[in-house]
Design a protein around this nucleic acid. Structure first.
Lengths: 235, 235
DNA sequence: ACGTCGGCTTGACGCGCGTCAAGGACGAGA
DNA sequence: TCTCGTCCTTGACGCGCGTCAAGCCGACGT
């Protein structure tokens, strides 16, 4: 990982949708108050149940917001990249973290105190609307996580692949080339399952002629089938 | 159900946490702009996927925010009572409803257009903070729904009973008397399962000496056991 | 009292998926 | 080239829970 400058931090804060409409001056103040942390892969950044006095903005890398069940499995609720904030909700509500956060890749985090955010809100009230919009979207996303959990594993996989086809799919002579975006073991965890089951689900989609697996990417032949399976109207 | 007056509507809006700090005048304006609907039990109030131009505040009765899976099961994400708003998030974000809403009991709803809310926000910017706090709390609640879905059915049941013991439990000579709060079939749906499985789960808690079932209420002998099972550290 | 109807319970069964265990496949290092 | 080590795959098995199909019980109406 390369060294992280104050500029990178400012860029990340500028990109953050929470205060979309804040002035550059206000961002500079926020950046000055931030404390920066470099975290290795797997490093725990926030712990479920702890009081949240500050929140993080991802400067680089990727972090996972997750819940760990008693038997050690993890459910990934969100993943955050450059310019996205985590643990902000609990900080805003003045409560405890409802979930844990760790680094999915080596990551750099800018920590902002709840106080700083409220000062920003007082100084520039117009940002409230952006904040409200962002929270609303997060709520909608989480709703879709709940719905996803109602699907079986092939359904969840199809939903993921479908969304990813739209986002990063590349048309080729064979079909739509889509990278999985992470190691299969990690993908399995994101889908709330284990590598063995993911492997079988991929195998089944292959046998059904929907796609072909090539290492860490897949060639999708039938996007419609993915959409159907992923919306719960499969078979 | 008794007739609903404009006063009831105003009282419900006053109780709504979205605009906790709004002035009474502003509430009156909002109430005047609201359209009131009486809904029979089971009446669909909002449909997943539809654009949300307005949102509802519950004046009386109880509504369920839920997702229906392709095979017809429902997952209940939230239930709302007097003074609580639904479909507000999608309206604020200018998007589509992420879930459906129906009346769990006969209910009276005050519908507010997104426009009215934004006018209120413009007129009284101080309410933004309350709105942000409310959205944050909703986000936290929904996080706990996700966690709950990771539990098995006895765990979800125990979690529900534990929370309800704290909320409405009444100490008696035998133990803590707790009403289930709804018919068992409805409770089963709320827990994301079916009556048969709920029945078995209750039977198992009974056999383990944790509680005793009496019609639509239970006598809890061992609250600690409920807490343990409901937090995922059961057995 | 007697039907009967809706809500609840119980048993039998099948399917999905998590677990355990045993192989591949592939790259890194000597 | 051989040997690890890591990641992925495959098979066998058990458990939880949804489904189907009977019963059971209390609440009604006439």
């Amino acid at each position: 990982m390369e060294a992280t400058s104050r500029n990178d931090v400012r860029a990340a804060l500028r990109a953050c949708r929470l205060w979309r409409t804040a002035t550059d001056d206000a961002i500079a103040v926020l950046a000055a108050s931030a404390s920066v942390q470099d975290a290795a892969r797997g490093r725990l950044l926030a712990t479920e149940g702890e009081p949240a006095e500050r929140f993080g903005v991802v400067v680089s890398g990727r972090v996972r917001v997750f819940h760990m069940t008693a038997d050690g499995r993890t459910i990934v609720m969100e993943t955050m990249e450059h310019g996205e904030a985590f643990a902000a909700v609990a900080t805003l509500a003045g409560g405890r973290n409802p979930a844990s956060v760790d680094a999915a890749t080596p990551a750099t985090i800018a920590w902002i105190s709840g106080e700083s955010l409220f000062e920003l809100l007082a100084a520039e009230p117009q940002i409230a609307r952006g904040l409200i919009g962002d929270l609303s979207e997060r709520l909608i996303n989480l709703t879709s996580v709940v719905q996803t959990l109602a699907l079986d594993v092939p359904g969840r996989l199809a939903r993921y692949l479908f969304q990813r086809s739209l986002a990063v799919g590349e048309a080729t002579a064979d079909g739509l080339r889509v990278s999985l975006g992470m190691p299969k073991a990690e993908l399995a965890a994101s889908l709330g399952t284990v590598p063995e089951t993911l492997s079988r689900a991929l195998g089944r989609l292959r046998d059904d002629g929907v796609l072909e697996v090539r290492g860490s990417e897949v060639i999708v032949f039938d996007v419609g089938a993915l959409a159907r399976l992923g919306s719960g109207y499969g078979e």
